[in-house]
Design a binder for these strands. Structure first.
Length: 135
DNA sequence: ACGCTGACTATTA
DNA sequence: CTAATAGCCAGCG
């Protein structure tokens, strides 16, 4: 049985303007995304939808990907290369410096990628909803 | 303020 | 099997 999971009902993105740095005490949707992504173990990958679901906004997978876009400039370095779509495809590879950089990083972590698709995806898939509990 | 866009996903044809 | 559509919600012009 999947425990409480907080159920904040649509966490509703705090929507603090990105133009201003989010405060640590006022965790925004993006901050949570970054935290979860940083928690992804090496050699594992996850999907945008899984992160969104963990945050309570299952249908907002796009927001996760969009948050990744902003994550590039972050100091703590968010391993966005470990986040792929539900099919295990490297959909965000074009947002990296080079289209091959994302795959390169994945392979560096022993993650096999072929034709922009993560091999053994289901096996190395890291689901925060199952691996983590609501803080 | 309105409408379009997007590193997504699940459903339907 | 593949292709199109609807839902999702914050940012930007």
């Amino acid at each position: 049985m999947p425990l409480k999971k907080s159920n904040k009902s649509k966490s509703k993105i705090s929507s603090k303007k990105l133009t201003t740095p989010p405060a640590k005490d006022d965790i925004s949707f993006f901050e949570k995304v970054y935290q979860v992504v940083r928690l992804i173990p090496k050699g594992r990958v996850t999907s945008y939808g899984a992160i969104a679901a963990y945050l309570g906004s299952k249908g907002s997978a796009r927001m996760v990907g969009w948050a990744m876009n902003a994550a590039h400039n972050l100091k703590p370095a968010v391993p966005a290369h470990r986040v792929v779509n539900s099919a295990g495809l490297l959909t965000g590879k074009f947002h990296f410096g080079s289209s091959s950089e994302m795959q390169n990083r994945l392979e560096k972590e022993k993650i096999k990628v072929e034709n922009d698709q993560v091999k053994n995806f289901k096996n190395i898939f890291w689901n925060p909803v199952e691996e983590l509990e609501y803080d």
